[in-house]
């Protein structure tokens, strides 16, 4: 409850600051519209904003699913097979030297203006953090658990150990990968929309910008931010529910 009040207070403070800057700076609305103008635009264009937001949301969700699937599969391959480590790991690390931003036009060229190129962007941008985090978790299974399994098994069963011990033990690491993914997946989708699209919040922002509808652009930005924050908290809450044994963030002791 206290946190909610603090949040509302911070929001009110930021909005007032915004309004003050607009008034004192005598900024014309085509440079920086006031909060009221943006709110009005938000209200007037609700249908339009929602239609474009649903396109972006779909891109983000599909990109997340695909990226998490591919990333987890790669991490498992790396964790399980030495050959995969030897061949795949250098490629994976080298691939990170190419900024995703640089290949966005290529993706649009290959996959077209529709959903495909945006999903590919979101997938690419989250693939590495998911793979790296999950693989790191798979590599650091506590030795005691592995020892226990080794004594319990008369003949080695690497798959059983992976399934019953190594993968569950790595889930908290995968979870931090998913949190990063949730935070950056919207970047991928919007980036894809900027490079070339006919729908989505990124497209709407560019479109509004070129028509000097800066209030609409801000409204779209606001919707996008809400979408991104909502996605992050949904993922975070879901992960906490699924992994109740995961250590909570260490509580800091503050003197009152």
């Amino acid at each position: 409850m206290k946190g909610l009040w603090r949040g509302l207070l911070t929001l009110a403070g930021l909005l007032s600051l915004w309004q003050v800057v607009v008034i004192l700076g005598r900024l014309p609305p085509y440079l920086l519209p006031g909060p009221w103008a943006v709110a009005t635009s938000l209200w007037r264009h609700t249908g339009l904003l929602l239609a474009h937001a649903s396109v972006t949301a779909l891109e983000i969700v599909l990109g997340m699913l695909l990226g998490v699937l591919l990333g987890s599969a790669s991490a498992l391959a790396l964790g399980y097979s030495r050959r995969a480590r030897r061949w795949l790991l250098p490629v994976l690390i080298a691939s990170q030297a190419i900024p995703v931003f640089a290949i966005a036009p290529l993706l649009v060229l290959w996959l077209g203006y529709g959903l495909g190129s945006k999903i590919a962007m979101a997938t690419l941008i989250i693939y590495f953090p998911v793979t790296a985090n999950f693989y790191d978790g798979l590599r650091h299974t506590p030795r005691g658990w592995l020892d226990l399994a080794r004594v319990m098994l008369p003949t080695p069963r690497p798959w059983a150990v992976l399934r019953h011990i190594a993968i569950p033990a790595a889930l908290p690491a995968l979870a931090s990968g998913l949190r990063v993914a949730a935070a950056i997946a919207p970047i991928g989708a919007v980036l894809g929309e900027w490079v070339g699209s006919s729908a989505g919040l990124g497209y709407l922002m560019l479109h509004a910008n070129s028509r000097m509808q800066i209030d609409l652009m801000f409204a779209a930005l606001l919707v996008l931010a809400t979408l991104a924050v909502g996605l992050y908290f949904t993922v975070d809450a879901g992960l906490r529910r699924l992994l109740p044994w995961q250590p909570r963030h260490p509580e800091t002791v503050e003197p009152d």
């Binding site: 005691g144 658990w145 020892d147 226990l148 399994a149 004594v151 319990m152 098994l153 008369p154 003949t155 069963r157 059983a160 150990v161 019953h164 011990i165 569950p168 033990a169 889930l171 992994l243 044994w245």
Partner: peptide
Amino acid sequence: TGRVAYMAQEDLLLPWLNVLDNVTLGSRLR
């Protein structure tokens, strides 16, 4: 091989399993 049980200083319980599932871990692994 297969005729030894091992108990360490740490309890080595798996935090994602309940007590019963921890006790039966061996059979699940096998």
